[in-house]
Every structure is written in C-alpha cells, then in structure tokens.
C-alpha cells in the first residue's frame, strides 16, 4: 500500500524515536518521578477517554472511506463489524482475525 510515499531512511528512524518517546515518557512519568506528583482528578478522568477516541479515529476512516470518499457498502466495513462482533462474543484471540480477513477476501472474490 502507498509504496511511493513511505517515510524513508533517516526520517523513518526519527519517526521511530518520536513514537518511542511518546510511549516511554507517559509510561515512565510517575513511576520515575515518584508519587509526590499528582495528576488533577478531572484531567485523569478526561484522559481515560483518549485511547477510545484515538483508536476509533484510526479505525473508522479505514473502514468507511474508499479512495477518500465515504462508502458504506464496502468489504472492509463488513469485515471490521464482523471482527468486532466476534471479539465481543468469543474470547478466542485468533477468531477476529480469521473472520475479518475471510470477509475481506470474500469481498474481493
């Protein structure tokens, strides 16, 4: 996918370093600084919603958009919905991948 536009060389490694910083600063924050520092409670409550909003912001465009336009009848949306339902219903960690990818492939056949 998107072969020509992939970040390359030094930019790519710089991106890795930035992602690593964006990961390890939050992880280490209070463990390293110690528990004397405290996060305001309202902020802590608001932050709990960040992962949900961010995950959906990544997933929705991938399922709803085909070449930049909204297409509610595409195989990836059905596959994503299928994977969601399967993950909701069964605990097997492989099943969402099997079902989701099977639907994507069937949609192209």
């Amino acid at each position: 996918m998107n072969e020509g536009s992939l970040l390359s060389g030094g930019w790519l490694w710089l991106a890795f370093v930035l992602i690593a910083l964006a990961t390890h600063l939050p992880r280490g924050s209070f463990i390293v600084a110690g528990s004397r520092a405290r996060l305001p409670e309202q902020l802590q409550r608001a932050l709990r919603y960040a992962p949900a909003a961010a995950l959906a912001a990544l997933v929705f465009p991938d399922m709803l958009l085909v070449d930049g336009a909204i297409d509610p009848f595409n195989a990836k949306l059905v596959a994503g919905a299928g994977a969601f339902v399967v993950a909701l219903r069964w605990r097997n960690p492989w099943l969402p991948f099997i079902v989701g990818m099977a639907i994507v492939w069937l949609g192209r056949a």
């Binding site: 992602i19 964006a22 990961t23 992880r27 924050s29 528990s35 405290r38 932050l47 960040a50 995950l55």
Partner: peptide
C-alpha cells in the same frame, strides 16, 4: 497520534 494512544499509561503510571 502515538502520544494520544499512550496517554492511558500516564494514568497507569500515576
């Protein structure tokens, strides 16, 4: 994007 996805760790860490 990475930072937002990792904000939960601030809470875990705290």
């Amino acid at each position: 994007t990475a930072l937002v996805l990792n904000l939960r760790f601030v809470i875990f860490s705290a």
